[in-house]
Design a protein around this nucleic acid. Structure first.
Lengths: 151, 151
DNA sequence: GGCCCATAAGAAAATCATTCTCATTTGCAA
DNA sequence: TTGCAAATGAGAATGATTTTCTTATGGGCC
């Protein structure tokens, strides 16, 4: 059984537990998400899934994302453009660094920063429930001889 | 000259330098922002300003926010609901903690976290351009004798 | 295997923040 | 003052997301 199939089976049992159905559409969308190694938005997911089932509608993608999110099967992020992007959630917690030039999204995690956030919240009298941390950066050039103009 | 008037004067000279005009509407909106101690959205700013000038339109608020932002006079934030909120920018950098129960926004700053973010970006080969950090927390109850049920 | 019906899907309309268009007004420099 | 580019007001347009409404279907039960 592939990792993807395992994820689908887990989700199916979660749905069953909640009295919800495993439909063809949900299975398809889940498969698309499981196979994605990026952070697609609703339209991107729709496009990929539509290739396998041209009767699928965008509404169903949005609805399914809600179900998946409420079951904890995916995570939703909205970076600077405000559009919701999704990724499957069966992995450890991480934050994101976005390349401001290419838009590429790089995942990272840091126990130090997690701990620091918890401490800051505590100092303000709060218990940390969740957080959002996005770094926006530009690729560093490796040190090298500067190119001469019209060499 | 009040702090608000000083901010308005500074902004006026910034505009002049950019070949833009200081209009009644911009003056009014800037005043509303300078007097705000919260993080209002466009509609909130419009409502407050409208009380002083009922000819103001919401479009002008949005347009003005763009000008103000491009001049560095305000900062725009979008928390979890995706709606843009604004605050005047002539203060040191800070991040936000949002009370998940009340929606209250608390500002904080931490050199340690700034430095840590810079280091994390560097380790990934990036130069940090900017970041977004939001903590979502719940107020801690002060320790006390637990209330007995039907005491 | 077929039935029942609550849940889900498809299609399109509705929503809501934000942006754009366009006709009119207004800073402000000469 | 005058001229005109920049700005405004009002409303239409946009675009992501949600909702409505009618039809289809998953899956427990016989």
């Amino acid at each position: 059984m592939s990792e993807t199939d395992r994820r689908i089976a887990v989700f199916e049992s979660q749905l069953k537990g909640a009295g919800l159905r495993m439909t063809q559409q949900r299975r398809l969308i889940l498969r698309v998400l499981a196979e994605a190694d990026d952070h697609p938005d609703a339209k991107g997911i729709f496009t990929r899934a539509f290739a396998h089932d041209p009767t699928l509608s965008l509404s169903t993608v949005y609805r399914t994302m809600k179900v998946l999110e409420s079951q904890g099967a995916i995570e939703r992020h909205a970076f600077e453009d405000g559009i919701s992007r999704y990724e499957h959630a069966d992995q450890e917690h991480h934050d994101h660094l976005i390349d401001v030039d290419s838009g590429e999204v790089i995942e990272f995690s840091s126990d130090a920063i997690e701990e620091l956030q918890r401490r800051i919240a505590a100092e303000l009298g709060y218990e940390l429930v969740r957080h959002r941390l996005e770094l926006y950066g530009r690729k560093k050039q490796p040190a090298r001889k500067p190119a001469r103009k019209r060499g």
